[in-house]
């Protein structure tokens, strides 16, 4: 076995990839949020549609988006592999009574992750697929035809079910990040008495602020 496959198949190596892909996805969330916040601009979707067009056509962004897809897939598959190994590691007989001395989020990353994955499917089908291959009407900005994704989004958020799905999913994301952010650093070996409080604070702030802003958008649009 060469060193790379050894690294890849060891539990530590798998965790390394979980952490790296996780951190990349965290970075992506920030970019995504900045874009989404354009929805709140009262310009009938102009800024947002231009942004959506840019995101689907710029070659650099496109490359990065492929990396992003890969990260999601790796993050999910590795999680499944690890979960299976971890489940098996407990053995056939399970504890009859178990009191947990660890935070709830840390023990339920799999469930939270699954919720987020389900959300992702809905979300991608609803917007991303529509944007790429769906029949979205276009708008003309300064002589250029741009798909009016804003209209699709705007319509979706008039339906309470969609808003609820979004808000609930962002709660799941918040909990996932609550543990995941700092955990990624721990896995990478970034653990230092001096900086741990900073990582922990930033992680928790991130876990609250970013999903909250994401969730704010559908609520805000629903109310408008």
């Amino acid at each position: 076995m060469n060193w790379f496959t050894k690294l890849l198949t060891s539990t530590l190596g798998r965790k390394l990839f979980m952490a790296l892909t996780g951190l990349f996805l965290i970075l992506f969330l920030v970019i995504h949020l900045i874009g989404n916040l354009q929805l709140l601009k009262e310009d009938e979707g102009h800024a947002f549609n231009v942004y959506a067009k840019f995101m689907t056509s710029n070659p650099l962004i496109k490359t990065v988006s492929y990396v992003n897809y890969a990260c999601i897939i790796i993050h999910v598959i590795w999680a499944l592999l690890l979960t299976r190994k971890n489940y098996a590691a407990r053995g056939v007989e399970r504890y009859a009574v178990s009191k947990n001395s660890s935070p709830w989020t840390s023990r339920n990353m799999g469930i939270l992750g699954t919720l987020i994955l389900i959300f992702l499917v809905i979300h991608l089908q609803g917007f991303w697929y529509q944007m790429h291959w769906g029949g979205i009407p276009t708008k003309n900005y300064d002589g250029e035809d741009v798909k009016d994704l804003f209209a699709t989004v705007d319509f979706a958020y008039t339906q309470p079910l969609w808003v609820i799905i979004y808000v609930v999913s962002m709660v799941a994301l918040a909990f996932h990040l609550w543990h995941g952010f700092a955990s990624a650093f721990q896995t990478l070996g970034v653990n230092h008495l001096k900086y741990n409080p900073v990582i922990s604070f930033v992680g928790k702030a991130f876990a609250i602020i970013v999903p909250a802003l994401f969730a704010l958008i559908p609520i805000w649009m629903y109310l408008h």
Binding site: K6, T11, K15, S106, M109
Partner: peptide, 18 residues
């Protein structure tokens, strides 16, 4: 040591802190 740990069938760390 990590290779041996893995081959013994212990699970991976998910940083729960338990």
């Amino acid at each position: 040591m990590v290779a041996q740990m893995d081959s013994e069938g212990f699970g991976a760390c998910t940083n729960t802190g338990a």
